[in-house]
Computed example of a mutant assay.
Amino acid sequence: MINIILAEDHNIVRNGVKILLERDADLKVVAETENGKEVLNLLQTGIEASIILADINMPDMDGISLLKQMKQKYPDVPIIILSMLDNEQYIIEAFKEGASGYLFKNISADELIFALKHVHTGNRYICTELSLRLLDRLMNLPSQRKNWALHHDFSAREIEILHLMSEGYTNNEMSDKLFISKRTIEGYRQNLIDKTKVKNTAALIKYAVLNGIIE
Rank of each mutant, 00 (worst) to 15 (best):
E22D: 08
Q44N: 08
I205H: 10
S50F: 14
T45E: 02
N3A: 12
V198F: 05
A156T: 10
A149M: 00
A115R: 06
P59E: 06
A7R: 10
N191Y: 08
W148Q: 03
I56V: 04
L112H: 07
L21S: 05
P78A: 15
V30E: 04
Q44D: 10
Y74L: 12
H163T: 08
L134C: 05
I91N: 10
I213E: 00
M84A: 11
P75H: 01
Q72G: 04
A99Y: 09
E167S: 08
N57M: 04
E167C: 01
L192F: 09
A54D: 09
L150F: 00
M58N: 00
E48Y: 15
G98C: 06
T184G: 08
L67H: 00
K28D: 02
T184Q: 13
T128Q: 15
H151W: 06
L85T: 07
L66Q: 07
S175E: 03
K28H: 04
G212K: 12
T196K: 05
N41F: 11
E34R: 15
F114G: 01
N123T: 04
G63W: 08
L132H: 11
I180H: 02
K199F: 11
K199P: 00
M174E: 03
I205V: 14
K37S: 09
D153P: 02
V77Q: 05
F95P: 07
E167R: 05
E32P: 01
D176E: 10
E38I: 14
E173C: 01
D62G: 09
N123G: 03
L130H: 15
L116W: 12
G168F: 08
I56W: 05
I92A: 07
D62T: 11
E111Y: 13
I180R: 01
R14D: 11
D55G: 06
S175D: 02
H10Y: 14
K28T: 01
E93R: 12
Y125I: 14
D76K: 09
E38M: 15
L103P: 05
N106I: 14
K146G: 02
G16Q: 11
Q190R: 15
Y207D: 02
I205E: 09
I213C: 00
Y125E: 03
L178G: 01
L112R: 09
M58V: 10
A149R: 00
L192M: 06
R157P: 00
